[in-house]
């Protein structure tokens, strides 16, 4: 190589030194963090998150936000058969057939709907995941027993199951939550088990075995964390269905018997007698249910995409 040649290779040598090295930027970004990054840039996910957040805030600060007490009866003198007062000074959405402020009831109702949705989903998630882990981690006869049990639960229609639980445990808010949770259990159990079985056969699990990693660590350190994505997505989507289901059960009269706690489903049920007089009584709670369920669904669907390895760069 001539001196000229040496001189002429300066810049290219700098470039060559970088070949085979690591690309810059985004260094050390774990899958979870890159999934969140994608979510943060996703307008649909943000829409879902904002909806959910608004409802959560409303529920948390209901006493501050509600203009009136949700159970006190007002304007009783104006309520006659065939007329229920509409929007007016102090009652932006009017009152219901017993003179209770509709807006305040909707605001307080968000507490019940979200509480029932979250508690029942968490309950279903915990029980379902435990069963799923049991089946997925041990396999063999444990798997067979657990999954047949889950199949039995699954074979009973959801609503019938919920009614049975309500009847057995007596009508209360707790039994409503349990009823909804029981319906969710098989979904989570099957999902996690299937996901774990698939992950157990994957190369990295075999590799861990070949390395002499202990079985417990393989299952709980590798297989389980990698099996969670579909469960997380399902839990988000389940929040939506749980809220709808709670409303449905309340509508059927199996909801919370405590009239001091307004609930959207019960409000909807109550409103159907007055549909021809004041449809707004049904429209508003229905709208709340739809919007909050939509919020969770949007978030869940986008979470699915963000966590899906197929969308990984």
């Amino acid at each position: 190589m001539t001196a000229l040649g040496n001189y002429k290779r300066e810049r290219i040598d700098a470039l060559a030194a970088r070949a085979g090295q690591l690309p810059e930027g985004d260094a050390g970004l774990s899958l979870t963090r890159s999934a969140f990054r994608r979510l943060r840039r996703d307008p649909v996910a943000i829409t879902g998150a904002v909806i959910v957040l608004v409802f959560l805030l409303v529920a948390a600060f209901a006493p501050l936000l509600a203009p009136k007490d949700p159970v006190t009866q007002y304007l009783l003198s104006e309520i006659r058969p065939g007329t229920i007062p509409g929007s007016q000074e102090g009652f932006p959405l009017g009152v219901d057939n017993l003179g209770r402020d509709l807006l305040s009831r909707l605001i307080y109702g968000s507490r019940q709907s979200l509480l029932i949705g979250v508690v029942s989903t968490v309950l279903g998630l915990v029980v379902g995941m435990s069963l799923g882990v049991l089946a997925g981690a041990f396999g063999g006869w444990v798997d067979t027993v657990v999954m047949r049990f889950v199949d039995i639960i699954l074979s009973i229609p959801g609503l019938l199951m919920a009614i049975t639980v309500s009847v057995l445990l007596g009508q209360s808010q707790l039994s409503l939550m349990i009823a909804i949770a029981v319906v969710q259990v098989p979904i989570f159990a099957r999902l996690l088990r299937g996901s774990m079985l698939a992950q157990r056969g994957s190369d990295y699990a075999v590799a861990a075995r070949a390395l002499g990693v202990r079985k417990g660590r393989i299952v709980f350190g590798h297989v389980l964390p990698n099996s969670l994505s579909p469960v997380i997505v399902q839990a988000t989507l389940s929040l939506a269905t749980a809220i709808i289901e709670a409303a449905a059960l309340s509508y059927l009269g199996l909801g919370d018997p405590d009239i001091a706690r307004p609930e959207w489903g019960a409000m909807l049920a109550n409103a159907q007698d007055f549909l021809s007089i004041r449809p707004a009584l049904a429209v508003w709670p229905a709208l709340c249910i739809i919007v909050v369920a939509l919020g969770f669904t949007l978030l869940g669907e986008r979470l699915r995409e963000a966590l899906d390895p197929k969308f990984r760069r």
Binding site: K8, R9, I12, A16, R18, G20, Q21, P23
Partner: peptide, 28 residues
């Protein structure tokens, strides 16, 4: 050496230059 990831955009020079033993500065 390196991998296809090391290619530079053609507008900046020969895409293969970073991996090339023959490359000179005028490849850029």
């Amino acid at each position: 050496r390196g991998s296809a990831r090391d290619a530079i955009p053609w507008s900046e020079g020969c895409a293969f230059a970073p991996r090339c033993d023959n490359a000179q500065d005028d490849c850029l």
